[in-house]
């Protein structure tokens, strides 16, 4: 098929799809006039039943906890697939030379100062997942950024030292596994899988929401380790093998 005919086909089907989308959007509720009461019910129920003030967190880690389990494992599988894809090609014994990067004093000073702040900020976002905007996914990513900052100011060797594969992989797996274990523990305690049976704590305190708090922590560990592993795999792929030098 030539490029030209492919473009014509793409434009034709895009036009048809566009019409379909516009037709579908016409039937949506008017913007700003959200009519459903389901959201209102959750806004009221989650505060009263679970003592959490961040309702999207309650939805993700309690009311839709089973879906979020799938979401978390999608990230897990994507990172595992990426590692398999890269490692299969690289081979095991293939030694890479670690490059020594020259960074300016400004980057080194700013970066060194920012690492502590980033770790603290990430932990705050994870721990306050049931209170304020944020949670395991967002905070986990910020924590992974702290490790990337080490790469930025110290280069490959320091990054390799803080992101030892065996450790990061174990951390990622235990984060993902803890999610399932929490679910199974609820099953063992006589409830349903991922049912929230733990004490819900006091409203507007760090420990609140029962399993929401714990699953939030597990997710934070899993996401931060997953993204560190992701950076590490891409960085390793970008290095030249020593034989090609």
């Amino acid at each position: 098929m030539t490029v030209r005919s492919r473009q014509i086909m793409a434009l034709g089907s895009a036009a048809a799809l566009g019409l379909l989308l516009v037709w579908g959007v016409m039937r949506l509720p008017d913007f700003g006039a959200y009519p459903e009461s389901y959201g209102d019910m959750l806004n009221a129920a989650a505060v009263a039943e679970r003592h959490v003030t961040n309702i999207p967190s309650a939805v993700n880690f309690d009311y839709r906890a089973f879906d979020t389990l799938g979401e978390e494992f999608m990230l897990f599988v994507a990172v595992a697939g990426l590692a398999v894809l890269f490692r299969e090609q690289r081979g095991q014994s293939d030694r890479k030379n670690l490059s020594v990067v020259q960074v300016s004093e400004a980057v080194r000073w700013m970066g060194s100062g920012l690492i502590g702040f980033t770790v603290l900020f990430g932990m705050m976002i994870v721990l306050h997942g049931s209170l304020t905007p944020g949670g395991g996914f967002q905070g986990g990513l910020i924590l992974a950024m702290a490790v990337l900052l080490i790469y930025l100011i110290r280069g490959d060797e320091a990054f390799e030292r803080v992101s030892r594969r065996a450790f990061v992989e174990a951390l990622e797996a235990s984060g993902a596994g803890a999610y399932i274990l929490i679910g199974l523990a609820m099953l063992a305690a006589g409830g349903m899988f991922l049912e929230n049976l733990l004490p819900i704590g006091r409203l507007r305190e760090v420990y609140s929401g029962g399993t929401i708090f714990l699953i939030n922590l597990a997710t934070g560990v899993e996401v931060s380790a997953a993204f560190v592993l992701l950076f590490a795999e891409f960085l390793e792929e970008s290095r030249k093998p020593s034989s090609e030098r």
Partner: peptide, 29 residues
């Protein structure tokens, strides 16, 4: 307050997008 369900869905969406982009970039490499 606005609907929390769609906000939670948007979070899921972002995570899926990030995971998929990473995997696709690896395939491109």
């Amino acid at each position: 307050a606005v609907d929390p369900v769609v906000q939670a869905l948007a979070l899921t969406d972002v995570v899926v997008s990030a995971a998929m982009t990473a995997l696709l970039l690896a395939v491109a490499v």
